[in-house]
């Protein structure tokens, strides 16, 4: 179809037409800032990360140990019973190799986001993080990984207090 059309009607627009405001438009710079209260569950989770620990909570009704922790069980709709320390290692549940940046520019070394099932928590309970010190072609589902922490004095009580997870020795 389109191959039969020799000439398109209309006027082509160039980037300069926008810059010179030959094409009219309105812009707005956002100023939307928030500070979310972490509350009981996330608050302690982050405080423990700062101390170099991964902590979860247990529901005695469905016998799950969940991470990240919450104060209520979303299955049983009851308060969680106990805080438990988990290991800073686990198994890759699923992963992806992310070859683009935020602006969709391609990158040579892909980021490797992964869901890591944390040892000590119930099956399927994991935290989302990045993998590092690993050849992207070697990553596989079921890979054993362990946390690489920032030095204690650099930790701020954030998920980034863990720099990434790397394959266990």
């Amino acid at each position: 179809m389109s191959s039969k059309i020799k000439e398109y009607p209309g006027v082509a627009l160039h980037e300069s037409d926008f810059a010179e405001k030959k094409v009219l438009y309105t812009t707005w710079e956002p100023n939307a800032r928030y500070a979310w209260d972490t509350g009981v569950a996330i608050g302690r989770y982050l405080a423990e990360l700062k101390r170099g620990h991964i902590v979860g909570t247990t529901c005695h009704a469905c016998r799950r140990i969940v991470v990240p922790p919450r104060v209520f069980c979303e299955w049983c709709f009851r308060p969680m019973d106990e805080w438990v320390y988990l290991q800073d290692q686990g198994v890759v549940n699923t992963f992806s190799l992310c070859h683009v940046r935020w602006d969709m520019e391609r990158v040579k070394e892909p980021l490797i986001p992964a869901v890591i099932e944390i040892a000590g928590a119930s099956k399927g309970m994991g935290i989302l993080h990045l993998l590092g010190e690993v050849d992207p072609t070697e990553v596989h589902i079921g890979l054993q990984v362990q946390a690489v922490w920032k030095p204690a004095r650099q930790r701020t009580g954030a998920i980034t207090d863990i720099r990434y997870f790397k394959p266990s020795n």
């Binding site: 979310w36 209260d37 972490t38 509350g39 009981v40 569950a41 996330i42 608050g43 919450r70 104060v71 209520f72 709709f77």
Partner: peptide, 19 residues
Amino acid sequence: LTPDVSYKELMYEAAVKAY
């Protein structure tokens, strides 16, 4: 101010009471 709870914990508390 309600710095002691997250929005989820705030909602949970109201829901538990309502149910």
